[in-house]
């Protein structure tokens, strides 16, 4: 009987490893069947996720205004972006915002996770409390913070009442501060997400390891850096990757808090895409920005994942 029509046998309990298949034709039916079942799903995924993205990318090489027929203009949009100080500023802002967001979010999240891992009796309630902002709409969060950070808002009022007038700022209107005010709001909202990743990581670390080190006289700090921190590597990989993507594509918070301003002080690639496309009606130019952002996220995520996975193996 030919191999492709071989009857599928029950799973063998033999300890010997399965024989490696020689090409697709050599794959046994038991191995091929799941692949065949996945094909419709893969096709739909490609159709609805990736074909649309690739088709959209084509507009990056056109002068499309959203209404008339697009004309192919080669790399002109990309050349214009590279020669535009504001566009490059948006790229730099995106990278800066994402970097500080990733570090801030993970440091705060890790701190919260360690604090709420054991010992505290109210830890379950506190975990919910710190995680709550994650499930809130970024727009709603941004509008609340817009009120808090208003030049005549509660934050400046509180600073004034505490005699700290020198610290009062125009948090959303000062070109030197606006981007970091947005970053602060993002860290406030998403540190609970990092906390959840790190809590999951902490709970997978056997308590015995910590206890044994403690019996051996290791200090709390030494136990953390030598045992806990290395074993949190898988959680860190997930948390850092997720926050990097969130940071690079920041949009809602920026639009609601500063609209990328004042001027271009807090403009990110995502807000630049929106403005060029829907405010200035330059759909082709906006698509070029979008393509840059997509490639940037892909590259950063791939490099980051490779580095973090290598670190996991090393540890």
């Amino acid at each position: 009987m030919p191999q492709r029509t071989r009857i599928v046998r029950p799973v063998s309990h033999s300890l010997s490893p399965p024989r490696p298949a020689a090409g697709l034709a050599g794959i046994r039916l038991s191995q091929r069947a799941p692949l065949a079942w996945a094909i419709p799903g893969i096709v739909l995924c490609l159709l609805f996720h990736y074909v649309a993205v690739v088709a959209g990318a084509w507009y990056a090489f056109t002068d499309w205004n959203g209404l008339s027929a697009p004309s192919f203009i080669g790399l002109a949009n990309f050349v214009e972006i590279l020669g535009n100080r504001n566009a490059l500023g948006a790229l730099v802002n995106t990278l800066l915002l994402a970097s500080v967001f990733v570090v801030g979010c993970n440091v705060v999240g890790l701190g919260l996770a360690i604090g709420l891992h054991r010992t505290l009796r109210s830890r379950f309630a506190l975990r919910s409390l710190f995680f709550a902002p994650v499930v809130m709409s970024p727009l709603a969060v941004a509008y609340i913070w817009q009120f808090i950070l208003d030049a005549r808002g509660p934050l400046n009022a509180m600073l004034g009442n505490l005699g700290l007038r020198s610290l009062q700022k125009v948090w959303l209107g000062d070109p030197n501060i606006a981007l970091w005010s947005v970053c602060l709001v993002m860290i406030w909202q998403f540190s609970g997400l990092c906390m959840a990743f790190y809590l999951a990581g902490l709970q997978s670390i056997p308590v015995e390891l910590d206890e044994a080190a403690s019996v051996d006289g290791a200090t709390a700090s030494r136990r953390f850096w030598r045992i806990t921190f290395p074993l949190l590597a898988p959680a860190a990989t997930v948390s850092i990757s997720m926050t990097t993507i969130l940071g690079l594509r920041a949009f809602d918070q920026v639009m609601a808090l500063t609209r990328g301003g004042p001027g271009f002080a807090s403009e990110t690639l995502a807000t630049a895409i929106f403005k060029e496309t829907f405010v200035n009606g330059r759909f082709g130019y906006g698509a070029a920005f979008a393509l840059i952002l997509t490639v940037l996220i892909l590259l950063v995520s791939a490099v980051q994942l490779a580095v973090l996975r290598a670190r996991e193996k090393r540890l």
């Binding site: 504001n86 004042p262 002080a265 200035n280």
Partner: peptide, 21 residues
Amino acid sequence: REPAVRGVLISSGGAFLAGSK
């Protein structure tokens, strides 16, 4: 004709108010 000009009144206008242009 170019919507981007009004866009500059918004973006550079904001920067001018902030003293950075």
